[in-house]
Design a protein around this nucleic acid. Structure first.
Lengths: 160, 160
DNA sequence: ATAAACCCTGTAGCAACTAAAGAGTCAAGC
DNA sequence: GCTTGACTCTTTAGTTGCTACAGGGTTTAT
């Protein structure tokens, strides 16, 4: 099948498939005379594996490790367990961070119950205070509060 | 004070301060004869405000909105409340997502209790299965499972 | 024959920085 | 006066995991 069909079969975007090839997650395929990539069932399975891992929020580096084990079926899979345990640890850590964050935000929100002028807004005044040192940057690899949504808006990074 | 002193005073990196200036969060300052930026107390306060917001995982866009209110103290601050409510909603949504993810990962982990050869590893076999459609991409802006840690390793994006 | 639908490569953009190159400035010590 | 070192400047590129072009070529259907 051609790349568009593979894309449809796995629910992946065409560009993402080519990106995975460049990133070394999918090997380069044979091409048609017209230079089109051709894929078979094994490619579809491998891509499904990758997408499944991604839906579990693993990084491409982590997935590379898992793929190495899939490609060497006689190896001992103890490292797979370890990788997964570590990943679970990261997720748990991020949940704890976000819970703390949620508490802080709710506390902040309580400082201004009804709309008034900004000069007396408890929220703005509190945010202007010093301190508050330790942010939420833990050792894990779970992202901050802002996910992969579609609210891109063009940054005004105005360097002439 | 010079940029290094401001950096020390607020616990911010020098490059980050210059980045905020480019991004329009800090206005351009006066310079010395030798072209060094000079800051006063108001700059330190504004930067503290920004860093405080960042420690609460707000985006620079959200902070821009808050700064606009700080700069216009007679405006009604109802939008501040709304912004904060929305942000709290995003955090709460991300926590729910990560809890689901954690459950899935733990279920996966249970499939392989002790190390064996990869061909019979329940984890790898499960990940190779089809399906698992809906990932964790909700509407909010809270990041995935991998945070702002220091585990960068150079991607092998081998384009010749 | 030609238009539409697909495919190709290469490059730039997103968030919020971080790092490094290459150059200039300033104060202190000899 | 001159050097050394610490600081600063601008500009550019890297990080993650894509996404979206531009500017072409190929295939398929009419």
């Amino acid at each position: 099948m051609k790349i568009g069909e593979l894309a449809k079969a796995t629910g992946t975007q065409v560009e993402t498939i080519r990106y995975y090839e460049r990133a070394g997650l999918l090997s380069e395929t044979t091409r048609t005379e017209g230079n089109y990539r051709i894929y078979g069932e094994t490619h579809a399975e491998r891509l499904s594996f990758i997408r499944h891992c991604r839906s579990l929020d693993m990084t491409l580096d982590e997935i590379r490790v898992l793929l190495r084990f899939k490609d060497a079926p006689t190896e001992n899979c103890g490292d797979v367990n370890a990788l997964l345990d570590e990943h679970i640890g990261h997720v748990a850590a991020r949940i704890r961070e976000l819970r703390t964050l949620e508490r802080q935000l709710k506390g902040l929100r309580d400082l201004c119950q009804e709309a008034q002028d900004a000069a007396h807004c408890g929220i703005l005044n509190e945010l202007a205070r010093q301190g508050s040192e330790g942010g939420s940057s833990a050792a894990g690899h779970v992202h901050g509060a802002h996910g992969r949504s579609v609210e891109r808006k063009a940054i005004k990074d105005k360097r002439k």
